[in-house]
Design a protein around this nucleic acid. Sequence first.
RNA 1: GGCGACGUAGCCAAGUUGGUAAGGCAAGGGUCUGCAAAACCCCGAGCACGGGUUCGAGUCCCGUCGUCGCCUCCA
Length: 466
Amino acid sequence: MSLRVYNTLTREKSDFKPIEEGKVRMYVCGPTVYDSAHVGHAMSALVFDVVRRYLMYKGFEVDYVMNFTDVDDKIIDRANRLGVDPFELAEGYIEEFKKDLKDLNILFATENPRATEEIETIIDMVARLLENDVAYEVDGDVYFRVEKAKDYGKLSGRKLEEMNAGSRIRVDERKENPMDFAVWKSAKEGEPAWDSPWGPGRPGWHIECSAMNLSHLGQQIDIHGGGNDLIFPHHENEIAQTETITGKPFARYWMHNGMLQLKGEKMSKSLGNLVPIRDFLKEHTGDVMRLIVLSSHYCSPLTFNDEVIQANERALERLLSAKRPAMPDANGAPQQTLQELQAQEDKTNQEFINAMDEDFNTAGALASIFDLVRSINQARAAGASDSELESAQETFGELTGVLGLVFNEKEIVLTAADAFIDLLLDLRQELRKQKNYDLSDRIRDDLMEKGVVIEDTPQGSTWRWE
RNA sequence: GGCGACGUAGCCAAGUUGGUAAGGCAAGGGUCUGCAAAACCCCGAGCACGGGUUCGAGUCCCGUCGUCGCCUCCA
């Protein structure tokens, strides 16, 4: 069995073979930090976190680089409007985003380079583009000459002559070709600037990613990821810049996640319908967000609304049920039940890999995990002991771990209340014996309101955090 | 207008090389319970529409309709 990956560049799935055996170099486009990150950013980060985790599960060593674009027109605009320093503004949002990633249980990148830390490499690249005549300077700005790039448009499937740049925006008259894009922008008065052979200025948006790839991962990388809204022009331009400089194919596999859909349309800043990650996390756990992302294929648009969120809250509870211990009176399940549990465990292990190998089919992988959940619960209901459940539960934990689910966040935090809840349950048990259901139900209802779920069994009552 | 993706049960959604449709949520019925909750059991679609290829198509081809993304900053 080998891993197959859909490649935007070739428009087909192919076997995954890294440049260097056993090692994967991957680069994911991070955010431009001029505002709080929203759930769309979370989707992208989660998608590639799962890709990374699965590659690690398959035994690859993964170098995972995600950048921060910390100097850019929007950051400057925003900072000016708020009357703050643009670098401080960016720094604040970087810290915030890192916290968001942590709350979503996303593994830290091997490196988080920033545009402002790559200026030297960027200037060097711009100089080389000029030397090779694939770029030209106008009044302190430097533009990339798209007609000089071999196969320009190969990633997005566009042809230069078919593109009508400027149909919706006025074209800069100084450009030779409307599709030419800035690799270096001259600074206006008061804007952040670095000295360069072309005067003070800052990098264009696309060149920074080319530069960070070059200096942190090398001339060629295995996976380049990002949202599919970056295919054009961002990734197209990255390819043009990098490949004209190195003369080698840039990334082997281009992976793009679909857009998150909010009420049928893309969530975006211009539409003003975004949901910040931290707002989402005030009401839901990171696992819920992750489960929503896992429940469909990463390439597809992701439906995101209250109904979906609620459904996944419940689905998460069901997953969690697999981790519960044996029944209090468990004295062993029938042989046949245990054999079926073992069979399902093997089956799930296999199906999980089959699904994930097929271009990270997380929905399929999840389906086989749910099958395992059912088997575990069946065995428990049939009287399986903890040791009889152990192996299947370990498999469950391992596979959900590969998907990055954590579970139990609340239990870890709130164990200090345990003794008191136990006491209340004892009291309630007494009241029930006396058939004082008014009071006993009141205890149950009040605890329920505080997030404690009580379940009665013939052997006594159990409770858990909701 | 150009490029691309998609249209599978009430909702979300999977479906390798074509052979008679995973999983989750919701709804309903049942077991259990003082009542609940949880768990367990049972229960639903022939795949936008119309043609075609084939012994056989959700899966390939053509057309139609619809939704969405990109073409301008965007994960």
